[in-house]
Amino acid sequence: MNSPAASVLFVCVHNAGRSQMAAAFLARLGGDRVAVRSAGSAPADSVNPAVTAAMAEAGIDLSAETPKILTPEAVRASDVVITMGCGDACPVFPSKRYLDWRLDDPAGQGVAAVRPIRDEIERRVRGLLAELGVEAAA
């Protein structure tokens, strides 16, 4: 197996919605060509049920995922760090490539409100793959 072309860390406060969706899309579309991590500065106990339901509609099962704590090691091990609404709660390390994706927070929302967030995340993940020079899987 070839080593991944890049490693990406998605970060949001609770690691229960946006970062979980982004990591799942990148893992599916990037395959073994991209190493994927997600974490939160204050992780929730579980993934948002509306997020799990919306991702199931897209054919991605998040039911076994659990929110993870953000560590400095995860940031250092990643080529690209993408924050999603965590503001000053996420550490910044010099020389990392940082992107901040401003997206609506799915917390407290129903599946209908999560769908457009999910679709926007998928669009951005596809764009990220193109920037990284990785062809998205079908």
Rank of each mutant, 00 (worst) to 15 (best):
R97L: 11
I60L: 15
G59I: 08
A107N: 12
K68S: 10
A64N: 12
L99M: 13
A107D: 10
R102P: 09
L70V: 03
D100K: 03
D88N: 15
V81Y: 00
A58P: 06
A35Y: 04
V13M: 00
T66Q: 14
C86G: 02
A44K: 04
G85P: 04
D45P: 10
T83M: 05
L29E: 08
D45W: 12
F10Q: 03
F93W: 10
C90S: 10
V81S: 03
V80D: 02
P72K: 05
L99Q: 14
G40S: 02
A23S: 08
G85L: 01
R18F: 00
S78Y: 05
K96M: 11
E65N: 14
F10D: 03
A42P: 04
A24Q: 10
I60C: 08
P49Y: 08
L29F: 09
A44M: 02
T83G: 05
G40A: 08
A74D: 10
G59C: 11
A16S: 15
V92W: 14
R102W: 11
S38E: 00
A50K: 00
K68Y: 06
G30Y: 04
G40C: 08
K68D: 01
V34W: 01
M55K: 05
P106K: 00
G31D: 04
M84K: 00
A23M: 01
E65I: 10
G17T: 03
A50I: 09
M84Y: 02
M55S: 09
P43I: 05
G110E: 14
P91A: 11
A77G: 07
A58R: 15
T83C: 06
L62C: 09
N48R: 09
A54F: 13
S78T: 02
D88Y: 05
A35N: 09
I82S: 07
G17D: 01
D32F: 03
P67H: 05
V34H: 00
A42Q: 14
A16N: 03
P106L: 06
M55R: 08
A39S: 02
A56S: 13
A35G: 14
P106V: 07
T71M: 02
F10T: 03
